[in-house]
Design a protein around this nucleic acid. Sequence first.
DNA 1: ATTATCATGTAAAAGGTTACATGATTTG
DNA 2: CAAATCATGTAACCTTTTACATGATAAT
Lengths: 183, 183
Amino acid sequence: MLRHALLGILNYHPMNGYEIKQFMDQSTSHFWYAKLSQIYTTLKALEQDGLLVSEVQPQEDRPDRRVYTITAAGQTALRAWLAEPLTQIDQTKEPLLLKLFFSAQLDKEAILAQLHIQRALYQRLLETHRSQTAALIKEAVEHQPHLKRDALLWESTRRLGELSTELYVRWLDETIAQIQEHF
Amino acid sequence: MLRHALLGILNYHPMNGYEIKQFMDQSTSHFWYAKLSQIYTTLKALEQDGLLVSEVQPQEDRPDRRVYTITAAGQTALRAWLAEPLTQIDQTKEPLLLKLFFSAQLDKEAILAQLHIQRALYQRLLETHRSQTAALIKEAVEHQPHLKRDALLWESTRRLGELSTELYVRWLDETIAQIQEHF
DNA sequence: ATTATCATGTAAAAGGTTACATGATTTG
DNA sequence: CAAATCATGTAACCTTTTACATGATAAT
């Protein structure tokens, strides 16, 4: 699936691997992230399949940049993937829930400690969604008004991130209270 | 991570691969699922590592069952994993959000069709969480009262499943309305 | 008659992570 | 002076999925 993410990103404009990583960290990371090493190898594979072409831009005093551009075949592949209906629910994997499910083995204090750590992390993430991510979308559309339709969809993904992080914090509070009382 | 899930499950009582699959489908599938083929290969690997032992139970007219039992080393490994603090947020991957993010390429009707399919799927899942999953937990604790502490944690994972599925449906409605008006 | 259930496995491929390797420039 | 940023890549490994292989019994 990273293949499709890369095609989608490069369909905005040509970029190098490092820039793609930054773009993803700032925009898609709460529903799709990737390591640099995977980005580089996947870009290479997409070029071999003819969905991208690359060009090396020499630089002085730093490594040359390899800039990738989407091809016509790449755009066709992107549109085909977008049009494909999703007839199943995403089967997500959540390590915290898996651990909690089996945690009757642990004592009360150990479980509560785990949950408090998570609460702090999610609280911080919530603030990122509300300020940083929201600001980035606003900024993008101000500089590039033709991205208005895109921005509407970006905002809806950001909104789900905010709402579900908020829910997570509430659920953690509820769960902490439950365990404190009844465990 | 499936390794830990298998240790956690077999810590309740010995089972064969097929039963483990059924157990997971009914309980952990909304935060951790696995295919049978992966379950079989992972069980084998855990046995080679000395965390499980297996015994073949011959059956007439159907394939013999290979029943796995957790070892002392397996229980130690399970507890070590449970005690390990989770200092990071789960980086989940959600294909629907990835697709939606890049969907400005599609026309309005195509996007709305995608979202309506998802709404139907999540609505059905919501009912499963509320009736089936809730009933299974109640039943388990009625038959085995010593699982009361476990059941409290199982219920909290079920509850997050219910709450977040509910939220997803609300968000889909909100997003459908937004796109209908402004796209 | 066909589909679902019970039951176990292997092999190949795809997807993703971790570790290694290099090195200049800028910021704190 | 240390850490972050810019910049690209390879190799080994681990995890997961898909496809193949088999076959009886029970339910619709």
